[in-house]
Computed example of a mutant assay.
Amino acid sequence: MKPMLNLVHTFTDLTQGEVGIHGGKGASLITMTGAGMPVPPGFVITIGAFDEFRDVSGLSRLIEQVLGDLDENDVAAVDAASARIRSALEEATIPAAVRGQIDDAYAALMRRIGTETPVAVRSSATAEDLPDASFAGQQDTYLWISGAESVNEHVRRCWASLYTSRAITYRRANKIDEFGLSMAVVVQKMVNARAAGVAMTLDPATGDRSKVVIDASYGLGEPVVSGTVTPDNTVLDKITFAIVRQSVGEKARELVPRGGRLVERDVEADRRSVPCLSSDDVRRVAELAKRAEKHYRVPQDIEWAIDDDLPDGENLVLLQARPETVHGAQPLTASVPQAASTSGFSLGSITASLTRVSA
């Protein structure tokens, strides 16, 4: 029997991630950690684990059979194909050797943190954030997951989300090879977010690269990303970080941890009417976004959070950075303002499948 390859990499195992091994999100998180950015710790279950899972379980053949001559314009057929594939993936057993590596990495992460702490389990596909395509919201993210058994369950769900109806239709419509795809999964310490959101190192409305634009709201950032809250919006000059304009959003709901689970609840009326970030916080977020842009040399779309578990001054963390795909396709040049430092995530870049209750 051939030895099992290392199918799990921590964010600190490498200094540079590879999309073909770690998927888009995983590669970005490894690279940002290697660049010294404030990324919460975690690990990536590489595409090799998913490939092993599909092959050992015989699901590769099933997927080929179901998708082989599928008509993407037949909505009912696509939905039926998606349901059949996802159900099979979610019910199949992860091979023992793969499961052992995932369990070992999870235990090591808990030891590093020093206590049993919830994690986010996030899909990281190889066909993700391509220059001429956007896969935003097509695969799943699960929040506030605790325990090895639940982590493995949600890893399977992330793998299965590669075959949502929306994802299948989009790939077919854009002539993206269905059978060269794979999925990595990121497992990362959850942040206890006082406030969170997204930032872009250009103005998404105009493409103006001399600006940084921040959307922020209370609690975790998923309501901002999914558009279910009206966030505070701040536009800053990229060089001086002076606020050009600012509007206070309604911020009617927040997603916060309570009693070992996530609760979506109403925000008190007096908090809705004031900015959720101080002027110092706004500047720090802008500096972080600019640092990511400087590192990648293309305009960035970042996800960030203020983590209440960390001390003041060290509590701004970077959850994701990706290229801005609408206006930012061209690399930065000497004529484009760049700043000294900074980090991020994208408007509408995921639609999270949340483990939560409403309150």
Rank of each mutant, 00 (worst) to 15 (best):
A108N: 13
S182K: 15
Y163Q: 11
S217M: 08
I30L: 02
V186T: 09
P231I: 02
V198T: 12
Y170F: 14
V248I: 15
S87Q: 13
D13L: 11
V187T: 04
A196C: 04
S60D: 05
Q65K: 15
S57I: 05
S146M: 01
R297D: 05
L354R: 15
R86P: 03
D177W: 13
L130D: 07
A193C: 01
R112I: 03
G227K: 08
K211S: 12
L332C: 02
D270N: 14
R253N: 10
L310S: 12
Q138R: 15
R99T: 02
F179A: 12
E91A: 11
F135Y: 15
T31D: 01
G259S: 15
A339T: 07
L277W: 13
A196R: 03
A96Y: 11
V185R: 10
A205L: 14
A340E: 11
Y106P: 04
G180C: 14
E268C: 09
A27Y: 10
A329V: 01
P95D: 01
Q16F: 08
A105I: 08
E303Y: 00
E303H: 01
I94W: 00
P38D: 13
S343W: 06
V119K: 09
T355P: 04
D79I: 10
R99N: 03
D74F: 02
I239C: 07
L70M: 01
E72Q: 06
F43G: 11
S278I: 13
E91S: 09
L89H: 08
